[in-house]
């Protein structure tokens, strides 16, 4: 297969405001993943003596949350419930023009090319602090009873890999889906109760401090999320923050 790539190129020099460059990607097997396609393009760029395109990647099996670009206007590309590394070139049309851009958000500054600094997410997680659990030898399985529905929903929330697609796809670059997943994951299970109300306050404060936008209930986040985390969790975050007002 053959594609025309329009790739965002930006050097680490803070004065560089970046630009799109056009690359031809020819002889691409339909079975290559999107990132492998970029690898092939990069090998050819290196052979030519050009700078390869910098992009984030790690596990390449859709579970680490490291990769991600906006491809033809969709975070992680057009295929729903899929990270960029799990997107394959067969799902594109032969000869298609593909626009590849980094996540765009004030809170996610571009490092180089398609790589962005997502440490704002780390700061939110750090702001959540610790949870009080007994450490030491492993506890017995099912020693703490947890209702099945709560365990299921907490697990669904825990599937968040922190890739940032919710922020990238949100018209307001809001991080509410990410934060709501973390709040739900810990807030639904007994182990998360002792710090529950402080945690929602400090994590929301860190989210706002980082410069993410506000939620306007567009739902683009849940549509873009590779783990298909539902925006119902945002209602849960809103509820927890409101309840925290009434708690010490």
């Amino acid at each position: 297969m053959k594609f025309t790539l329009k790739v965002w190129r930006q050097t680490a020099n803070p004065k560089d405001t970046g630009r799109f460059r056009t690359y031809e990607a020819s002889d691409i097997s339909p079975d290559t993943s999107f990132l492998e396609m970029l690898d092939i393009v990069n090998e050819r760029l290196i052979e030519r003596g050009d700078d390869p395109i910098a992009f984030d990647h790690d596990c390449r099996e859709g579970i680490c949350g490291t990769c991600g670009c906006v491809v033809n206007g969709f975070a992680h590309g057009h295929q729903e419930g899929t990270t960029l590394c799990q997107l394959h070139m067969r799902s594109f049309d032969d000869g298609q023009i593909i626009w590849i851009e980094p996540w765009r958000a004030r809170a996610f500054p571009v490092i180089t090319d398609l790589m962005v600094d997502r440490s704002a997410f780390d700061r939110i997680i750090q702001a959540g602090g610790f949870i009080s659990i007994r450490t030491g030898s492993p506890p017995d399985g099912n020693a703490i009873p947890i209702p099945k529905d709560d365990a299921d929903l907490a697990f669904e929330a825990a599937a968040c890999i922190g890739c940032g697609a919710c922020v990238a796809s949100c018209p307001n670059a809001s991080a509410m889906l990410f934060v709501s997943a973390k709040i739900t994951q810990l807030g639904l299970v007994p182990q998360g109760q002792p710090e529950r109300w402080d945690r929602v306050r400090t994590m929301v404060a860190a989210m706002e401090e980082a410069g993410f936008g506000a939620c306007t209930n567009n739902g683009e986040c849940e549509a873009a999320c590779p783990k298909e985390i539902p925006m119902d969790l945002i209602a849960r975050l809103n509820r927890d923050l409101a309840c925290s007002l009434l708690k010490k």
Binding site: K6, W8, G18, F20, V70, N72, G73, F74, E80, W99, E101, R104, A105, R106, A107, V110, P171, N172, A173, S174, G211, F212, G213, A214, T216, N218, G219, E220, E222, A223, A224
Partner: peptide, 17 residues
């Protein structure tokens, strides 16, 4: 919200909004 995305996308497509 106006300041949350200083550099806009060249191509942005919506699915659910």
């Amino acid at each position: 919200n106006r300041s949350s995305r200083p550099v806009r996308y060249q191509v942005q497509r919506f699915r659910e909004t």
